[in-house]
């Protein structure tokens, strides 16, 4: 049960139940679709840019608690950041998810995203947490093809 509480922290449960920025954005500057073929999770991500800075972000789709909460918290975290800052944030987030449990990992700069540290214990769920971020990369590049976790 303790591992489960690590994975399903209250913040994650809360974002799953009430995802933030959960709506389509008809006037988005960037848009991409993401798909996790393993579990069928799908999401669409929308970005509005102000020069090099993300001024607004939203998403729609269907996914598990980890993927929904990750998308919800990601949209909150990237709003107002420059693309370089977002890239650094993703790199830290990815390190957090993929560092083995017995190794120390820095949570510097991750702020609320730290709640995903429990995912480390569940390697098959890492892709759930990164689907939104893969889709973000595709949206920034404005790729027409669907971002996939596989």
């Amino acid at each position: 049960m303790s591992d489960l509480r690590e994975l399903y922290q209250q913040t994650i449960i809360d974002h799953n139940r009430k995802p933030r920025n959960f709506h389509p954005m008809p006037d988005a500057d960037h848009h991409a679709k993401g798909h996790n073929p393993l579990c069928g999770d799908r999401l669409e991500l929308y970005l509005k840019m102000d020069g090099n800075r993300i001024s607004d972000a939203s998403f729609t789709g269907v996914g598990c608690a980890i993927s929904t909460a990750s998308a919800s918290m990601m949209t909150e975290a990237i709003k107002g950041r420059t693309l370089d800052e977002v890239k650094t944030l993703y790199s830290h987030f990815h390190t957090l998810l993929t560092t083995p449990m017995h190794k120390p990992v820095s949570t510097d700069g991750l702020d609320k995203l730290e709640v995903f540290s429990g995912v480390r214990e569940f390697p098959v769920r890492v892709k759930c947490a990164t689907l939104a971020w893969h889709t973000l990369e595709a949206a920034i590049k404005d790729e027409k093809s669907e971002a996939k976790t596989e």
Partner: peptide
């Protein structure tokens, strides 16, 4: 209701119960 199959699978696995979640090759 309101709980994705993938989350059900992970939590059951903690109880050593192995079930399948996903589209079962039947999209």
């Amino acid at each position: 209701d309101g709980i994705h199959p993938h989350d059900i699978g992970t939590i059951l696995d903690q109880e050593h119960v192995a079930i399948r979640t996903g589209h079962h090759c039947c999209q």
